[in-house]
Write a protein that binds this DNA or RNA. Structure first.
Lengths: 185, 185
DNA sequence: ACCTGAACACCGTTCAAGT
DNA sequence: ACCTGAACACCGTTCAAGT
């Protein structure tokens, strides 16, 4: 028998995300997570003393970090930079739709604030004043979260006239960007 | 002893909303709900055969109906009409913040679609073309849901520079409205 | 230090039984 | 028709015990 890999906080959270992505948030239980890691559920508490609460907090943070890793940079126009930032964030939220309700619940209050600061930074570099950048960043983040929620729910709904969500996203984003521009003048 | 009021679907869902508003979604259990109604938990299944699933669906629908009842009407300018619609919806979501995660999860897929249609109707009456009205309605609804999530989470976060959420909401809404106007030209 | 086994309180739900 | 009581499978978590 090859000796099992040792349990770590990161391995636990990645396994949890895998369960959430594959089976949904409702099927993430400590016992099932233990099974996936080939360990008794109680072993998890050694690495996450606050138990499931800490696990869910960790999921939210982990998804935020994934975005920091993949976010594209370097476009010339600030609008292009915002566009690619927003598209990457949208893809992340839709890919990990199971964590969306966690973002909305009271866990890990700081995570969303961090993301908002990250958008504000892009806007500040683009020439927005400090306070306008923060306000616009919150506007954009609110839209991105809400749109992901709408899109995920809308995609599983069979309507007579199906929605083109890619197009919807682009259109909404243009509305936001031109509105932000107007607010600057 | 006065004979107990008979159990009805509506009484059950109202009691459930009361628990969610007062103690949070996590404390809504069938047994606690039974206690609040002075009935055994199992009695609830007679009125909601699909059990807790149906109860949570009912909560989402019920909050949507609350909005239909309270929504203000009759302003002259379409922007004013959208503004008051949006403000009422925002107040509703923040007042019943506990149901927000339910809106985002896979239950009751039709509820959000109904709300989107209701916004689209306001826009259509304001002179938007059919397809533009639906697109803009989804943009607005996405923003409203996301903003409620951000606001609820942000309010419980003690930051050095606290956010004025009323002002943030107004500013964001103006960005959206002027962006929607630009898209029409 | 890291993991296990048994136990506890609580959950949603089924089902036969009462009125 | 409407509600209850007992039971079942499953939760999260504690804690003493093993290595």
């Amino acid at each position: 028998m090859s000796p099992r890999e040792p349990l770590t906080r990161d391995r636990i959270i990645e396994a949890a995300l895998h369960i959430v992505d594959g089976q949904g948030l409702g099927r993430l239980t400590m016992r099932r997570l233990g099974d996936a890691l080939e360990v008794e559920a109680m072993a998890i508490y050694h690495h996450l003393p606050r138990g499931k609460e800490e696990l869910l907090d960790g999921l939210v943070t982990h998804v935020g970090v994934l975005h920091a890793d993949t976010r594209p940079l370097g476009a010339d126009d600030w609008r292009d930079r915002i566009r690619s930032w927003a598209e990457a964030y949208r893809a992340l939220l839709v890919d990990h739709a199971g964590v969306l309700p966690l973002l909305v619940t009271r866990r890990n209050p700081a995570a969303l604030a961090t993301t908002a600061r990250s958008i504000a930074e892009v806007l500040r570099l683009a020439g927005f004043l400090e306070s306008a950048a923060h306000s616009a960043a919150r506007t954009l983040l609110a839209f991105l979260i809400g749109h992901a929620a709408l899109e995920v729910r809308g995609r599983e709904l069979a309507t007579p006239e199906p929605v083109d969500w890619d197009r919807q996203f682009e259109e909404s984003l243009e509305v936001l960007l031109s509105g932000m521009l107007t607010a600057l003048l």
